[in-house]
């Protein structure tokens, strides 16, 4: 199985603060891995390192074949990051948002429609301004953008936040489907029961280090 994320003794800093202090993690293609741990432990930093947003100060960091210690920009077009914010434009409609992010990777209008369909946004919500949506509907729109961007590595930070029960089930189904079709998913979540049931394995992030959790 192809290795998608290969981090060994990675050190990353946020200003003066050590965000990752020797973190090691290996993730294979098609895996869904849950990152759990207390606030400030380094889960978000780990996702941002994998997205090529946070520089690696020391260690071995190869994601999707790109050595992040040499070039962080190459990996970016292949990852989809859903952080605490949705990365949407509230003035634009759901379709406009998905189309904008899809177009950045050359997605066709058919792929845009398919992404909207997959997240249940194609009927009455597609032409609604994002600013008028509920928190859960915005989250689904953000996920549709990831689908349209054909992300190979999904990096999700608290993806269930703001979703109702139906939305959570839909999200889980989308993530399972993404993994089944070859995408790799890293999920940072405090919702251990739900995210744990979704994930193939769980790792614990504590004080900037990653520890495997016995299943």
């Amino acid at each position: 199985m192809e290795t998608i994320v290969d981090l060994r003794d990675v050190v990353a800093v946020l200003g003066q603060f050590p965000a990752l202090a020797g973190a090691s993690l290996t993730v294979l293609r098609g895996e869904i891995v849950l990152l759990q741990g207390p606030n400030g432990a380094g889960k978000t930093s780990l996702l941002r390192v994998c997205a090529g947003l946070l520089p690696v100060v020391r260690g071995h960091a190869v994601v999707l074949g790109h050595d992040l210690t040499v070039d962080r920009s190459g990996v970016r077009a292949k990852v989809g990051l859903l952080g605490h914010t949705n990365g949407l434009y509230p003035e634009l409609s759901v379709r406009d948002n998905v189309q904008f992010w899809g177009t950045t990777v050359g997605a066709s209008s058919g792929e845009i429609d398919a992404a909207l369909d997959r997240l249940g946004l194609s009927l009455r919500l597609a032409d609604v301004q994002v600013g008028r949506l509920s928190a859960g509907q915005k989250r689904r729109t953000a996920l549709a953008c990831l689908v349209a961007r054909r992300a190979v590595l999904w990096l999700l930070d608290e993806p269930h936040a703001g979703l109702d029960a139906e939305g959570r089930d839909e999200l889980d189904a989308v993530l399972r489907q993404a993994a089944a079709s070859g995408a790799t998913v890293l999920v940072a979540s405090h919702e251990l029961e739900r995210a744990g049931a979704l994930a193939h394995r769980t790792v614990q992030v504590i004080a900037g280090q990653v520890h495997e959790v016995e299943q």
Partner: peptide
Amino acid sequence: AIETADGAIDALRVAGI
């Protein structure tokens, strides 16, 4: 402001464009 309001600026960075 339209880029920072909902974190779109991070998404632009990650978009690899």
